[in-house]
Design a protein around this nucleic acid. Structure first.
Length: 494
DNA sequence: TGGCACGTAG
């Protein structure tokens, strides 16, 4: 339709139909210019020494006056700038209520919610939770309709502190009156808070409420509950599996991390077969488990001593094309060692190297531990040599395993050499091992050497056990071969 | 991406 240019509906703002021309002060360009100039004055005022004017804080007066000077109304942007400036200067914080009062009573515009989000966060993080709550309830008085963003922010701030949690139910109830519609994100905030304070039982109740109220099942909430559940110490594997099963019935599709968390928990609880079941569920859901998942399950199977399953599962890893890492090999080697199949374990070590997976100190500790149990000290010494040849750095466990092996076989001379090496690296033996060393030295008449050793270890702030003192005192009665001062020094360790 | 291995007394 072609509009008659002279009809009443013609656009009277077009220049040719306008009765009177716009005042040059009313153009958009001029308005923007005025606003920019007013903002410039305001910004300059923030870096000037300040004085009070008309009972208003200096910056508020500057804001009002500068916009007035340019015949423009103050903008939300200007107020936001002012509030940000005040929050960045602790000496001006007391001015914020004035600004808010002025904004509430003297302005007409709809205040953007972002200003309240900023201030609520500021109050919450400055331990002024009540101010944050009060401001949240006051938002409608600023001609602003609060959304779930403000509610979620306030809830998350309250949930940071255990003592503020009791305020949450009241806020939720009142937010209904403010016409704020709860969203999945709100429930997530609450579930996160409950999980953080280890009340997973309540978190599960919240999740159930969500579903009853017709909200969709939120995968993130489920994952969080599973993770928190698995971190609990007082939960049985049956209870965890019950929650897991219910979530799956409700339509939760666990991801690889959810399964890994669950598997880790079950293995820790000694439920290797249940862990394997979770792994199989993952496969049935069409997700290929990764090597970490398999490794944890393998370790559970080794714990249960199901070595047939161990071999099956290790083969499955290879069939699936997954590449075992040093963790996987270490678990498998541990399984072989537990079966006393030391030769096969060594073969795996050799093949690891060929496949470019370098055995590490844990690999060697596993072998050494197995040999130590078998009291095969000869082989243990060879493994220790190989470890050093391969430039693998022994750790505390390596030394303790080896030292226990030597002491167990009464090879006290070598034990002392190894102990010296340990002490140089600030590693110390188990108290019982040290007791045995001193006792054996005393039995072999090496009283002076044992005192020297005692001196060295005491100088390193290691406190020997009671048995050691007993042994020394008993031997001192008959064989005093060192000065009294040494003895006194020894009995009063630093 | 992360998450996985040895050991363990008090």
């Amino acid at each position: 339709m072609v509009r008659n240019p002279l009809s009443k509906s013609a656009n009277k703002y077009l220049r040719k139909f306008r009765k009177w021309p716009h005042s040059p002060y009313k153009t958009s360009w001029h308005h923007n210019f005025g606003e920019q100039q007013a903002m410039l004055i305001l910004k300059q005022a923030t870096i000037q020494p300040q004085t009070q004017n008309n009972n208003n804080p200096f910056l508020l007066s500057t804001l009002i006056d500068s916009f007035k000077a340019y015949n423009t109304d103050p903008t939300p942007k200007a107020y936001f700038f002012l509030i940000k400036t005040l929050t960045n200067n602790t000496s001006q914080l007391h001015d914020i209520p004035h600004i808010l009062n002025h904004l509430e009573h003297n302005e007409k515009f709809e205040t953007p919610e972002v200003i309240f989000l900023y201030l609520i966060r500021f109050y919450g993080l400055s331990d002024r939770v009540q101010d944050a709550v009060d401001l949240f309830f006051r938002i409608p008085r600023f001609r602003c309709t609060p959304t779930v963003c403000s509610l979620n922010l306030l809830l998350s701030l309250l949930c940071r502190k255990r003592e503020c949690l009791k305020m949450v139910p009241n806020i939720l109830l009142k937010s209904q009156n403010m016409k704020i519609r709860l969203e999945e994100s709100t429930f997530r905030v609450l579930v996160e808070a409950l999980c953080r304070i280890k009340r997973v039982d309540y978190a599960i109740k919240i999740m159930n409420c969500m579903i009853e109220d017709g909200y969709g099942l939120d995968d993130k909430i489920c994952s969080l509950i599973i993770l928190s559940l698995c971190e609990q110490n007082n939960l049985t594997s049956a209870e965890a599996l019950f929650v897991w099963g219910n979530m799956r019935k409700l339509g939760f599709c666990p991801g690889i991390m959810d399964c890994t968390n669950m598997i880790r928990f079950l293995v820790k609880e000694g439920k290797g077969k249940d862990a394997l079941e979770i792994l199989n569920q993952l496969k049935e859901d069409g997700i290929k488990p990764d090597i970490v998942c398999y490794t944890i399950v393998l370790s559970g199977i080794v714990k249960e001593g199901d070595y047939v399953k161990l071999d099956e599962l290790f083969d499955e890893i290879l069939v699936l094309g997954l590449i075992p890492d040093v963790y996987t090999y270490n678990v498998y080697i541990n399984g072989l060692c537990k079966q006393n199949n030391f030769d096969e374990a060594m073969k795996i070590v050799v093949s690891m190297e060929k496949l470019g997976c370098k055995p590490n100190v844990v690999t060697y500790n596993t072998l050494l531990g197995a040999l130590s149990m078998k009291e095969d000290l000869g082989k243990a010494k060879r493994v220790m040599k190989e470890l050093k040849l391969k430039c693998v750095e022994p750790n505390l466990h390596t030394y303790r395993i080896m030292l226990d092996g030597l002491v167990g076989k009464c090879e006290i001379g070598e034990a002392c050499i190894l102990l010296e090496e340990m002490m140089e690296k600030c590693f110390y033996p188990r108290s019982s091992t040290f007791d045995s060393i001193i006792l054996q030295m005393c039995q072999n008449g090496l009283i002076t050497d044992s005192v020297v050793l005692m001196n060295k270890i005491v100088a390193k702030s290691f406190v020997p056990g009671v048995k050691v003192w007993e042994a020394l005192l008993l031997n001192l009665g008959s064989k005093v071969t060192y000065s009294e001062t040494t003895f006194v020094g020894l009995l009063s360790p630093k």
